[in-house]
Every structure is written in structure tokens, then in C-alpha cells.
Design a protein around this nucleic acid. Structure first.
Lengths: 107, 107
DNA sequence: ACGACCTATAACACAAATGTTATAGTTCAG
DNA sequence: CTGAACTATAACATTTGTGTTATAGGTCGT
């Protein structure tokens, strides 16, 4: 229950960018999982959802299995039917003005 | 200041699905717009953001102009740098169990 | 008028996701 | 054990987005 986390920490030390990449990857799988969960909460089979969205069952399966990320358009289509929202919110501001100039820089 | 909205309402009457499609389209452009806004709030030029994300300026321009939707992976990459989150939340539940069975149906 | 910076657009090869059909493995009811 | 419903996987053509280079049009300071 330790080695995996250790490995990750090492990588982050070696390459700070790794943290960002990892976070991104985690957000990616999270999406597949959430889609599947949402579908089941709604009591729909993959086939049902496929019909409702005009897709085919194997496509749903591919997405939920994480074989690849849905296109944004596909994700929105699914959420439209499943009753879900995609919110894009600004959070932390750790912004470095690359040179001189303060917050609202260069211009 | 009326004809456009009227047109839309007519379409919805003709084809109920049109409402869904429209909502989806609106969510799509919203994404492009929000990306641009967020970048400007951070005081970054397209070129800056490109460097920070390892992309090229024209790619940023393409996305912000809405020429096409970013791939989810690209969106996450941008948000990682811009300091933004993508939240996927369940909302309304207007779910019809297609045949018999109540909420948690068929299985 | 000149440079320096910005944003936008076009073109094209490449990669990634979709749409589709077929099919196989599960589980469960009868 | 059979069949029905569900999920998963493979293959392949098509569409969509990326990565890249080049270039053009704004705006501003000097």
C-alpha cells in the first residue's frame, strides 16, 4: 500500500511537470467513471442510453471502459440525455507574469 | 430584436429535439468563450498560453474562435495551466424507464 | 514609417475519436 | 440448458481535432 504512491512522489521530484500530467490523467479516467455511474443511477443500460443519444452500444462501452476519451461534443450529448452539467470554473490563480508587468500584463 | 428568437421557438415546436441540440450548441460555444476569457483574466497572450501548455499559438486561436471544439484532453491541458476545473455534475432527473420497471430497472 | 507585439487563417500530414457491424462472454430467469 | 439482456472487444472506414509552418492584419509606441 505504499510503493505506488512512492513511485509517484519520486517522479514528481524528478520532473515537476509530472504532477500536472498525473492530475490530468486522473481527471480523464474520472470522466469515464462518472459517465458510467450516472448512467447506472438513471437505471439505463448501455443499449438504452445508446438509443436515447443516437449512438450505438459499443460506443458507450468504449467510452466507459476508458478506451479513449469522449470528444467534448459526445460528452455533451451524453450529459444532455443523462441530465448532467459540465461546468468550467476558474480556480486557483498561480500566475506568473513571465517578465516584468504585473497581473494584467503585456499590452 | 425578435425574429431570431421567434425562429428558434418555431423550430422547437416543429421538432422537440431541436431544443436539446440548441442547448448543446450553446454549451459548445460557451466553452470557447470561457477559455478566451480565462486566458485574458490571467493576463496571458495566446502566445504565452501556447508556451505554457506546449502548444502553438494558432492552435489556441483556432479553439477560441470556435473553429472546432477542443478535445477533452486539450481542454484539461489548458485548464491545468489556466487554473480552472471541469466539473461534471448530475442535475435534473427526467428519466423515463422505457418499459415497465421503476427507477432502478431492468436487471 | 518602422518594429514589436498581438490575433487570425490557411494548408496539410498525423493522431484520435466516432460510427458501424459482428461477435463473444456474463448473468439470470424460466 | 436455453434464451434474453447486458457488457466488452475487434476491425475498419470516416470524421474531427492536433501539430506545424507560414503568413497576413491589427494596434501601439517611438
Amino acid at each position: 500500500m505504499k510503493t505506488h504512491r512512492q513511485y509517484i512522489d519520486e517522479q514528481i521530484k524528478k520532473n515537476p511537470q509530472f504532477a500536472e500530467e498525473l492530475a490530468e490523467a486522473e481527471r480523464e479516467v474520472a470522466i469515464a467513471v462518472q459517465l458510467a455511474k450516472l448512467r447506472e443511477q438513471r437505471g439505463l443500460s448501455q443499449t438504452d442510453l445508446a438509443k436515447l443519444t443516437g449512438m450505438k452500444q459499443p460506443q458507450i462501452a468504449r467510452l466507459e471502459s476508458g478506451a479513449h476519451l469522449p470528444a467534448l461534443s459526445t460528452l455533451l450529448r451524453l450529459l444532455g440525455v443523462l441530465g448532467g452539467k459540465l461546468e468550467l470554473t476558474a480556480t486557483k490563480c498561480r500566475l506568473i507574469s513571465t517578465r516584468g508587468k504585473p497581473v494584467s500584463l503585456r499590452r
